[in-house]
Amino acid sequence: MSAESIISLKNVNKWFGDFHVLQDVNLEVKKKERIVVCGPSGSGKSTMIRCINRLEEHQEGSIVVDGIELTGNLKNIDNVRKEVGMVFQQFNLFPHLSVKENITLAPIWVKKMPKAEAEELAMRQLEIVKIPEQANKYPGQLSGGQQQRVAIARSLAMNPNIMLFDEPTSALDPEMIKEVLDVMVDLANGGMTMIVVTHEMGFAKTVADRMVFMDEGKIVEEANPDKFFNNPESDRTKLFLSQILHQ
């Protein structure tokens, strides 16, 4: 609604076949805001953030990212994707390329950056995620946590304004979760606009400006973390929090 919104979802609806996966979703994200989205599985949280870079198409409503409305216009979609980085649950690194090549590929081919410059950039990004020594290995030779950090570096190399995280720690062994979260906290402190789908409530408490709770395709509750964790309004949120915090 406001002029400073960098992401704006208005009455977004989406169906998978007959299944109504997003129901009148409204969400405004301001520049540099950090949003954590949580909710039970199947609640539509992944689908929602995947609509923001058009990995999924919404069928009704409007999505505007950085002033560009997402429609069937392919050029607009490409422009939005250049602005929005995404980190996936399964890392999705390119297994046939080395770590460094994974990072330099998009800058070289999409941004037309000279190779030497792109490699320098890749090394800088690897420093940021704290694994410069792995540059010449292949993804298959790295641990899950290292792979996810490479995936973050790969996204950052495109210099996005917005980062989307789709359950970035769910596929990791417990002892590797922290190394990935640390990188994400650094990123948040650096002023990146972030939407994070996660069940890591500790991370949410330290980083989030706003919590969004989704259930059955709807946004049930939106609140600052303090209110969300200590004094939630909806019963559904209370039940979810009691289940997730008692683990």
Partner: peptide, 17 residues
């Protein structure tokens, strides 16, 4: 795996790239 397509798209690559 479909994740490879998604990762490539999310980096702004066109269909041919």
């Amino acid at each position: 795996p479909p994740g490879q397509y998604e990762a490539a798209k999310s980096l702004g690559m066109s269909y041919w790239r």
